[in-house]
Design a protein around this nucleic acid. Structure first.
Lengths: 159, 159
DNA sequence: TTGCTCCTCACGTCACGTGAGGTGGC
DNA sequence: TTGCTCCTCACGTCACGTGAGGTGGC
């Protein structure tokens, strides 16, 4: 009754296979936060959120796993820094502040780049949707012609 | 000065590699409409449009090449039918009309399915964009805190 | 004890990438 | 003739899929 899921449950919840989670772990992308006493992987809520992030970057933006690792790594360094912050380790020397600003700047740059890619994808999808709508309209016109032809064929006496 | 491009030109124009075009041809997805006397592939405007279709289905919707072949094949059968139509071969027997309606229905069903997938992707991208915007807002707040800390560090006499 | 899921190799697959060695057109 | 692109194998790669054979928890 824990919050931690087995690999099968986590895979099911995230829409991937156990093999995928093991492969991502092998690449250092997704080390499960716990193991059972017998050695089975256990995935917590944070792990599931990470799976979701990887899926978005991979499926929606077409990144390869190395690029995804770079994005997640930068975010990880920023959360480590935040953790140290909350732990009271916030001596505010000029050097420490500069270090934080540098890490934050990295994360902001990556976030902006990803947002730009999302916008580009949306524009591409909009253009694709417009093409498909045009095609659908041509199909509707063709269906009307066929229905008219069917009426003519059914009532040839009207010629 | 022809309208037909070499494989290198066609690949460049379409944003893929020559290897990709050869591979697609090997699967029967994209037979180039012409060959030079020496045996080189030549790609016309229709071929380029087809390359673009394959890219959209592959990159934007994540289809594999077998699914893409199915979509293109149905559309191909419909254009063959239209070609016969324009060629004057339009004897409008009830059987012929029924055949056309069946092929058109297939194409409409596929078009509707693809449009539904495009809409689903758009919703997923919108959700992703919203998450990224939230994250950007948190980053901005953090940047403000850091700037304030920098001022305190620069003017410690004000304590 | 019986299933079911878990584990680690390890080979297979899909969609190409990348030379290897040779031919063709300005 | 010299580059450059083209050609056909054919092996390599990335992100897994898919058994093979064995262990662990309700």
């Amino acid at each position: 009754v824990s919050e931690h899921l087995t690999i099968g449950q986590a895979a099911e919840a995230a829409g991937v296979t156990p093999r995928t989670l093991r492969y991502w772990e092998q690449l250092g992308l997704l080390p499960p936060s716990h193991r059972s006493s017998g050695g089975s992987r256990r995935y917590g809520p944070d792990d599931l959120a990470r799976v979701e992030r990887v899926r978005q970057l991979q499926e929606l933006l077409g990144h390869d796993l190395q690029q995804i690792a770079d994005v997640l790594h930068a975010e990880d360094r920023l959360s480590e820094l935040r953790a140290a912050w909350f732990a009271g380790d916030d001596r505010e020397t000029a050097e420490e502040i500069a270090r934080r600003e540098r890490l934050l700047g990295e994360a902001v740059a990556i976030n902006d780049a990803v947002r730009a890619q999302v916008d580009a994808r949306r524009r591409a999808l909009d253009a694709f949707a417009a093409e498909l709508e045009e095609k659908a309209e041509r199909y509707r016109a063709e269906a009307r012609r066929l229905r008219a032809a069917r009426r003519r064929a059914a009532a040839p006496t009207a010629s």
